[in-house]
Write a protein that binds this DNA or RNA. Structure first.
Lengths: 136, 136
DNA sequence: CAGTATCCAACTAGATACTG
DNA sequence: CAGTATCTAGTTGGATACTG
């Protein structure tokens, strides 16, 4: 079986759900640790490398570089080099990149609306696990 | 900085985007390899363990077990044990679980609509990388 | 300024074997 | 039937040092 992610538009039962699995690699866009934050940092317009690094305080040079390269390769952002001294490089969302942000927003909305619920469920589950023996 | 995922509802610029970062742990729901498929397999109603294993051909016993436990702990599915011999265990989506599927659907829709675009961008990028020297 | 290169610790997921 | 336990290969991300 191809374990790629399903295209849920075509969902019509579990089988169809599972068969509609083609573009899983594309899903890396959403599973990467920094992708969402980097795209978010670009929402207001073009940013330079170190500018992004400051905005994303906590990201390493390596991860910023890697994330930007991946986003560029995936066609979500545009990298522009100005051959000045010192060099200047701008990163900017393109149309495809902006469309991803829409999806990230719906993920963020769900997380914002239900995070407490999930966290409470986890605590309840862990509490239950503490006392597995039924008191008589 | 807290590198959790932003709640984009509150977005009002990159700063707000970055500051609205609280419930990142909740995002594991979307980044897990099997979560989406398991939730999808439960869309039509309760399923038993080995039933799910057959539907998700390719998943190992360990990963199915682990994924189901995580989903149960997160409060997205309900696990019901029937103390029969042989044992019977049903897994079922609850309301929270069904709401996640909505988000997964929007991810799947984006992926379905733009996968070709992303894949083409990757190929183009890789092609460009092959001939880095500008022919004179 | 805008990156690369290298090493390493932590985590993930698969294969395999065993259990109430 | 419905799992758990263990071992291991592969991947991810961070720290650090260096470069055009």
């Amino acid at each position: 079986m191809d374990t790629t992610f399903p295209d849920l538009r075509q969902y019509g039962g579990a089988d169809a759900f599972l068969q509609a699995c083609k573009p899983r690699t594309v899903l890396d866009i959403f599973t990467n640790k920094w992708t969402g934050l980097v795209l978010g940092a670009l929402l207001d317009g073009p940013r330079r490398f170190n500018e992004l690094r400051r905005m994303l305080d906590g990201i390493t040079q390596k991860m910023l570089s890697q994330t930007l390269r991946t986003l560029e390769r995936d066609g979500l952002i545009v990298r522009t080099v100005y051959p000045t001294i010192p060099p200047r490089v701008d990163y900017e969302l393109n149309e495809l990149g902006r469309s991803v942000v829409g999806v990230l927003r719906s993920i963020g909305e769900w997380a914002g609306e239900h995070a407490d619920e999930v966290i409470a469920a986890r605590q309840a589950y862990d509490e239950r696990a503490k006392e597995p023996v039924k008191p008589v």
